[in-house]
Each structure stands twice: as C-alpha cells, then as structure tokens.
Design a protein around this nucleic acid. Sequence first.
DNA 1: ACAATCTATAACTCATTGGCTATGGGTTAA
DNA 2: TTAACCCATAGCCAATGAGTTATAGATTGT
Lengths: 107, 107
Amino acid sequence: MPQPHDVLFRTLADPTRRAIFERLCRDGDQTVGALTAQAGVSQPAVSKHLGVLKRAGLVRHRHEGRQTHYSAEVGALSPLVDWTNEMTGFWEGRFDDLEDLLNRMDQ
Amino acid sequence: MPQPHDVLFRTLADPTRRAIFERLCRDGDQTVGALTAQAGVSQPAVSKHLGVLKRAGLVRHRHEGRQTHYSAEVGALSPLVDWTNEMTGFWEGRFDDLEDLLNRMDQ
DNA sequence: ACAATCTATAACTCATTGGCTATGGGTTAA
DNA sequence: TTAACCCATAGCCAATGAGTTATAGATTGT
C-alpha cells in the first residue's frame, strides 16, 4: 500500500544515507570499507544504511571475495521524478484551465 | 549549511505532510479547516505540518478574516529536480566516458 | 458584551530510528 | 590451523519527531 515514491522519500531523507547513495552515483561501484572511510559513521551504521537503500531498490550488491561491492540503481529514482512532474503538472493543469476559461470568456 | 534539497527530502518524507502538499498542488488554495477535514489527524497536527512546509518554502499563506489560506509553491521543488538530474547525470557522464573510450579505441 | 469559530502554540507522550559496541560468519594470508 | 580481515546482525541507547489534549489569540456573529 505504500506508494513507490513514499519509500524513496523516507530512504533519502537521512543525510548520511543520501550521501552514501550520492557517492555511489558519482564514483560508481564501491566496497563497504571504502564507503565507511568517508561516511563519518561506523561500519555497522554504513551496512545498515546500505540495507535500507537496498530494500528501497536504490542499490545492488555483489560479493567479491570477502568484500561486498555496492552500486547505485539510478533507475529506481523514476518514481521521484514522476512525482515531481505530477505536482508541477497539476499546477500547469490549473493554468490551462484558466486559459480555457479566459478563451471561453472572450467569445 | 544544509543543502536546499536536504530540507525538501526531510520535509516531504512524512506521508501526512506530503499528502497535505499534494492536496494543495491538486486543488489549489485551501484553508486549514479544509485540510484538516481530510488529513486524518487533528487540527494542531495539520498546523504543525503547515509550519514545516512553510519553513521549507513549499507553501505560502494569507490571512482572510479568521481563517488562513495556504497554497503550494511548486517552484520550491526545483532543488529536488536538480538533485535527481544530477544523480542520473553522473551515470550518463560515466556512460559518455565509456563511449569516448570506445571511440578512441576504434581509431 | 458575549458566544461561537478558526488557527496557532504549549506541553506532553510515545514510537521510530540513527548511532554505538560487541560479536559471529565467511574469506584470505601466514 | 591460526590469525587477520571484511561485512552483517544483534542488542542497546538517546535523540528526533509526529501525534495528542489543552488553551490562548484573533475574528465574526448575536
């Protein structure tokens, strides 16, 4: 029942977690250790954030030896884009309605 | 120091608050009473959410007699759009790099 | 003036959650 | 095998924040 964009908003609301996602978008594939090195929080905290990001569909992971590589799944952001388009679209819709009204008043 | 999109993510993370904003986008100008009628929470809760939305720049308000009208400020969403574009843009950037590399290898 | 109405604020409670340390499971190196 | 390393999970704590009721301020109606 939670809409797709709901999970995204909740997941990306935390600055630390969003920073991890941004890093993955910018620099691509990263190990947990590399992410921890610049996250400013402990490794378990990073792992937890990665778990949340994964359940939101925002990251994928693959095991390589004893380390895990995570990468961003940018396509998962589309519900967010859709939502913003919808919100601004409503406004344009009302603008069109106003135009229609004015046109009809002209005649 | 908080980036503009940070406030937006935090503000829109709450479902009740986001629903209020969506309502304002869809149906335009609304009084606190009208918003409370369909929010599923108490009037003080709605007022609080409106306060948060206002501090985020997402709504404007005007007083009309003893009631307050709120309206959506859709333009305030642009940092969100910019952020998503940036995230997907990084990915395209890496894709372009790959293309460049392949082109150079062709020659 | 008084009552009714609308909104905002105050004070409080409770659930959520982001952080930590400790530890276990799995993998590579000595 | 033993040690060192990487990551995930468990368990705990403290801060945040969304909700409530109570109430004050401001406006309209009687």
